[in-house]
Design a protein around this nucleic acid. Structure first.
Lengths: 144, 144
DNA sequence: GCCCACACTGAGACTGAATCTCGATCTGAG
DNA sequence: CTCAGATCGAGATTCAGTCTCAGTGTGGGC
């Protein structure tokens, strides 16, 4: 979804240096569909013979996360993964079959949270909703 | 919330052996208010001079998780933590000030998920909602 | 264009969480 | 009371992620 160009431009816009390793990581992220772990990217980088070190992949991923271009999600098995996404607040629906992630707009969730907040007299500062299941494409194909 | 006795009985009921180390871990879990990490429990165990090894703490925690007596949550900072809870589906509101966790019943969330599911043509198999904020007690005290 | 401060990089050491192994121990059915 | 096998503790191991540090490359200033 997010293109290499978008990622690269955001780095520049935020006042960071545009280096070859960062471009390379941006490409790897853009090439990924769905979620991926840091280790996945490190492997990708090695396979593509980019000569990029582990530390740089982590640092660049951290940078992207800071810029909101990539978001960290916690898989049901406890693994930490990342997904490329738009820089606005939203949630993810992750297909457990193909691993792709879909953006979920805030449909009605705000109301639910309001209710939770007032019910517990709880000042909500942040929240996280993660939905797991089978996407249209996968259940369309796999079902029969 | 969950008492030592409840934890111990559940182990028995599920057909597992009732050993002294498991009782001890059950006590430590019951004594905890709010979330705790595996490392916290290991420290507790050492401090209480129970003579329980790290591996056993992890194994027992895994057992409790399996039985639904304890649930794993991912803190905003990425740490893995656990909370003792009832064995029915629900969510957690975690106070970022005192660390206590409150059960959130499913108020309206099901409807939101239905909407998400049909909107994306996505077969939802599981979901996770985590709410972070300041609990009544903490903002009552801390505010002034 | 050229320079140079300094942001950034790679390699590998380091940390800490979690898992695995293995011989010893304990539980509980019979 | 006995015994199979579930469970245990200690420590080795693995692995993700972070840190260090000397070397490199970017890009603003001239």
């Amino acid at each position: 979804m997010t293109s290499t160009q978008e990622l690269v431009e955001s780095i520049d816009r935020a006042g960071h240096r545009l280096t070859a390793p960062r471009r390379a990581v941006a490409e790897l992220v853009a090439a990924r569909e769905g979620h991926f772990t840091a280790a996945d990217l490190v492997t990708d980088a090695r396979r593509a013979r980019t000569g990029i070190g582990r530390a740089t992949v982590f640092r660049t991923l951290e940078l992207f996360t800071e810029l909101g271009l990539v978001e960290r999600v916690d898989l049901p098995n406890g693994d930490h993964a990342y997904v490329a996404c738009e820089a606005v607040h939203h949630h993810h629906a992750i297909c457990t079959s193909c691993g792709r992630s879909f953006d979920v707009s805030d449909v009605g969730l705000a109301r639910v949270l309001d209710q939770v907040g007032s019910q517990l007299d709880f000042r909500i500062t942040s929240h996280r909703l993660e939905v797991f299941g089978i996407c249209a494409e996968c259940h369309g194909v796999a079902a029969h």
